[in-house]
Design a protein around this nucleic acid. Structure first.
Lengths: 338, 338
DNA sequence: CTGAAAGCGCTTACAG
DNA sequence: CTGAAAGCGCTTACAG
């Protein structure tokens, strides 16, 4: 029912080998007269090469895998956009897996990408403090079978990737906020099992320590908008006195948590930034349209995705790991108010 | 170098056929004793089935294609998340193409998905008024070759899909705003070549006409945040008198344009909603954290993606086309002020 | 229940 | 330059 190369060859009166060379081969191209006949036949019959058969014959599938924690999260969708863009023109197609932060699903994705003989995998999203041995093993197997792995966040040993300097960037953010006059900080942490969260946390503490400060409170939370909302709501309930004593500056583990926190502050009838200042991390797209605009640490997410793609293609020189520095962007949400 | 089924069979002392039946086959399972040996051998050797070879032999690749205009746009990333979720457990993997709204890239994606023998394609994003013949032809070819096509937005004839009632929903939004007291509307349109934009526009006009109203102005623009920002900035420049005369209500073609418009209004030193009220369309995630919160028409994006996936799997009954009604959500940004 | 063999649709040395 | 043939790694009727 589907048109095969053999059909095209017969229609054009040539061998399958010749048809293959005209249509999909690269180097030795047959005589133009014949080539024309083949192309005509392919066109007439509506021929589409079977990529699976090609992959099998060439032992190369023309596929790359992309694994993200949550494609609906602007952090990851920006990276995905960059990856897609960086792959443009390479002839490679992307297989996507959005894992909802489930380790088992992530492993399944690696296994599937292994089965599909993808040329490489871009793996975006924080590693966990404890449970990565299985992933590391799967990645290792994948690499041994010739696949390239590019990780965004914290590259595992032996892989290529972009290491985000979460700790240093967080410390720098704190330095700038301290320079502004802030002294009373509250840390709104995400799941401390995520390395990213731990690093940002450590950086904040480091920045505070440099100024001889300690946080007023450390709020655990989930790494989502709702997580930020809940943790902040709870804090504002239980620490009314603290907040009444003067402006507090909340440092959220990422932007979506910061957005949740902002809403919590407002629902509590408090003002941003006069009563509670808020800063996030990542610089997701909608942040600049917020009122007040929200302080954050800018990560060039789209460019990071694009660079990851280039690393996968082997276009990035010899550096196996590149470090990405976040850039603090101070906006209205952390204006210092006496 | 890579372990093949034949290697596993030899190691286990059985035929490849038997190994295949144990590892990947479904119905006739060999004796447990043998099965165990095969599984053990596979484990020891680190066997991963070659999905391409399986696809070729089974003539079924276990793949579905997902085409979106821009994966970084929250509208599409939410849909993508839903699709991914809806496919969970089906054993199908998704190939992603984010086309940046380029018709040629979209076509390429359809062709590639045809070559990869995907079982079906989910195609999200507005059709254009004129230039869809090529896409329609490609989709038709794909369908003739046995592929299922599910479209989100405006399904093409013969395809499955979700038709968003942009016109009806926009009209309903206007009715509710008129009921609130608004009379002075400005339409912030996107690219009128997009069917979605045209439909929303028509719905707005319809709603206005019912109240005997006409828009003060119709602003063309690009279907992005920056498009909204620019168009609105320009309008506020050129129509100072109009705005000074009393509250104006801006109806944007989608939420990201509305966000851009909001920022333009503020940069012009005007207040939302007192001077300029703003409404969007879609209800993307960050909208509810805005201050003031932003009026919009809610589309259940995640659920739509999930439903599209189910339609692709054939789990959705006989309705080829389902209509999605948007639900107006009135929030602070369109409070009526005398 | 198990295996030998053909076949899935291409590509690519190898001859001619 | 062109073609016959083997091979890519599986699956699956068909025999036994």
């Amino acid at each position: 029912m589907v048109v095969r190369l053999a059909d095209v060859a017969r229609e054009a009166g040539v061998s399958p080998a010749t048809a293959s060379r005209v249509l999909n081969g690269s180097s030795r191209s047959p005589a133009e007269a014949i080539a024309e006949k083949v192309r005509g036949a392919a066109e007439r019959l509506g021929y589409f090469p079977n990529a699976q058969a090609q992959a099998l014959a060439r032992s190369s599938a023309g596929l790359v895998g992309l694994i993200v924690h949550d494609i609906a999260d602007p952090y990851f969708s920006s990276i995905a956009h960059g990856v897609q863009h960086g792959l443009k023109g390479s002839g490679l197609r992307v297989m996507l897996s959005s894992t909802d932060r489930d380790g088992e699903t992530e492993m399944e994705a690696v296994r599937a990408f292994m089965s599909y003989r993808t040329e490489g995998i871009v793996l975006a999203g924080s590693r966990t403090v404890d449970g990565d041995e299985h992933l590391a093993a799967a990645v290792e197997t994948y690499r041994k079978n010739g696949g390239r792995v590019v990780m965004i966040g914290q590259p595992l040993p032996g892989t290529l990737g972009l290491r985000v300097d979460n700790r240093g960037s967080a410390a720098e953010l704190v330095r700038q906020l301290v320079a502004l006059g802030h002294r009373r900080f509250v840390i709104l942490s995400g799941d401390m099992n995520l390395v990213t969260v731990g690093d940002r946390h450590a950086g904040i503490l480091e920045g505070l320590a440099e100024a001889g400060l300690e946080p007023l409170a450390v709020l655990p939370g989930i790494f989502t908008r709702d997580g930020g909302l809940e943790a902040m709501t709870e804090y504002l309930e239980s620490a009314k006195g603290e907040v009444a004593r003067g402006q507090v500056c909340v440092l959220a583990a990422n932007d979506v948590m910061a957005l949740g926190a902002l809403t919590a502050v407002r629902r509590a009838g408090l003002r941003v930034p006069q009563d509670v200042a808020v800063a996030g991390f990542d610089d997701i797209a909608t942040l600049e349209d917020m009122v007040p605009s929200v302080t954050t640490v800018r990560l060039p997410l789209d460019a990071m995705g694009e660079q990851a793609a280039r690393m996968l293609l082997g276009e990035e020189g010899e550096e196996a790991i590149q470090v990405v520095e976040g850039e603090p962007v101070l906006r209205e949400s952390t204006a210092f108010c006496l």
